[in-house]
Amino acid sequence: MTRALTASLSLAFLVALVGFDLATSDLNPYQAPAAFALGSGAVASGGFCGALPN
């Protein structure tokens, strides 16, 4: 067996992850934030590993 197998499995994992996500949640580009946070005037609200829950 070669790395082609394991690299393909990692790609398959990504495809499955995104497929599962799209099947369980919706996307709405009309509710998307401004392209750049810098200068947007909006408060940053993304999840981050250093943040405690809000």
Partner: peptide, 23 residues
């Protein structure tokens, strides 16, 4: 905040997007 992100698409979560991009 956590519940909202669990219910939203991973394609709108910043670290998920960069993680997917890295792989």
């Amino acid at each position: 905040g956590s519940m909202e992100r669990v219910q939203s698409s991973l394609l709108t979560d910043y670290t998920s997007l960069t993680n997917i991009g890295i792989i």
